[in-house]
Write a protein that binds this DNA or RNA. Structure first.
Lengths: 200, 200
DNA sequence: TGACAAATCTACCGATCGGTTGATAAATTT
DNA sequence: AAATTTATCAACCGATCGGTAGATTTGTCA
């Protein structure tokens, strides 16, 4: 738990550090947090368990870093671009499109690891949940603007916001490369489904 | 793994048996499959770990029984009633309504434990996934009928079926009694959201 | 009441868990 | 080249894991 005097300054060290976190995310998506042992992870990156702890503070902290990094990516590649859009309908459409697109490119690590937040300490849990809450509020706010413009169906925006993110995050739970469904089709259909659900 | 000569014939024994499986589902929802130890479960039902194995064959089989039982319930309380409805629009509306209602009554065990199917043996996994697939097909088929009747939006019914079940199952992931949102409102809004998403 | 089965116990099994110790090798800096 | 930092290792720690052996208590039924 306590931060050791670990220092990753080398270029090769930085690469190894990234490799550790990427492998950890991949393994935890496959087997879950408690189902992934530190020995598993060490073997996956070709290190001993002891060497692994040169790069991480603890298993728990590693999960927190993974979730935080995924949220950073969401912020820069979805939230920030969307916030720059004035028209609420276009903004909402872009929020959905960009999130779906990012999820299909990344493998959907965050959507699948978000439930594992239960293994974090309370303060870390709250930090993660708060950032997700802010994202939901962004979607709900766009819908409120649409309501004022008379373009929205008569519905509860908070519940609808949940439904929207569930359809997008849900893609990670059922999509498989072997299905033959093109990614672009999924993105397009997901945007259409949700916009049609809420617009008059 | 192998079936022991366990026999639960007493009335009190049957009650204990149910209690074990209910407690197991509750704990696994909270902490996940690998995060729930058999000692945890034994303590939760006031037994020793050894006595627990009088009621179950293995941890893995217990998970399979929990998922199978939840699917039995889905069949009798959602699928069968809906199949008796001729009009595809009413049938689909009922499928969504009944599933959302059942989920909010039961605590949504199945929706939350379904991802834990990865801990089952391959044959058990396939059995569970097949039953879910059949459920998705039922929804997709209703949409195909709506399409023939000219009532459906231009969309991919397989993807839309996934989106629908994700919004419903997703309720289990965000609903909390402390939110103050009445269950009836959630059911109504979920039906409305999805029907409006797919109908012309 | 005697026999038998159901239900539960204490004590244990080998394996694995997350994590650490203390030493050493490799790279970088001075 | 010496000093320092970064990266890695084998070996180990106490705790817990899923599961079992074998005996014992509790309840049912003839």
């Amino acid at each position: 738990m306590k931060d050791p005097d670990r220092t990753i300054a080398t270029v090769a060290g930085q690469a190894r550090n990234d490799e550790v976190y990427r492998a950890a995310a991949r393994l935890m998506v496959q087997r879950g947090y408690t189902g992934t042992s530190m020995t598993d992870l060490a073997n996956a990156v070709g290190l001993t368990k002891a060497a692994l702890y040169h790069y991480i503070a603890s298993k728990q902290d590693m999960l927190f870093q993974i979730l935080s990094h995924a949220l950073d990516t969401l912020e820069t590649s979805v939230i920030d671009p969307a916030k720059a859009i004035g028209d609420p309908e276009v903004r909402l459409r872009e929020l959905i499109r960009l999130q779906a697109q990012g999820l299909l490119e990344s493998g959907g690590d965050f959507a699948l690891l978000f439930p594992e937040r239960r293994h974090l300490e309370s303060a870390q849990q709250k930090a993660v949940v708060l950032r997700v809450k802010n994202y939901l509020d962004l979607i709900a706010e766009a819908m409120r603007e649409l309501h004022r413009a008379g373009k929205l169906q008569d519905l509860n925006v908070d519940i609808a916001a949940r439904h929207i993110v569930q359809t997008v995050a849900g893609i990670a739970r059922w999509y498989s490369k072997e299905s033959g469904i093109p990614k672009e089709l999924i993105v397009e259909q997901t945007v259409k489904f949700n916009m049609s659900a809420i617009l008059k």
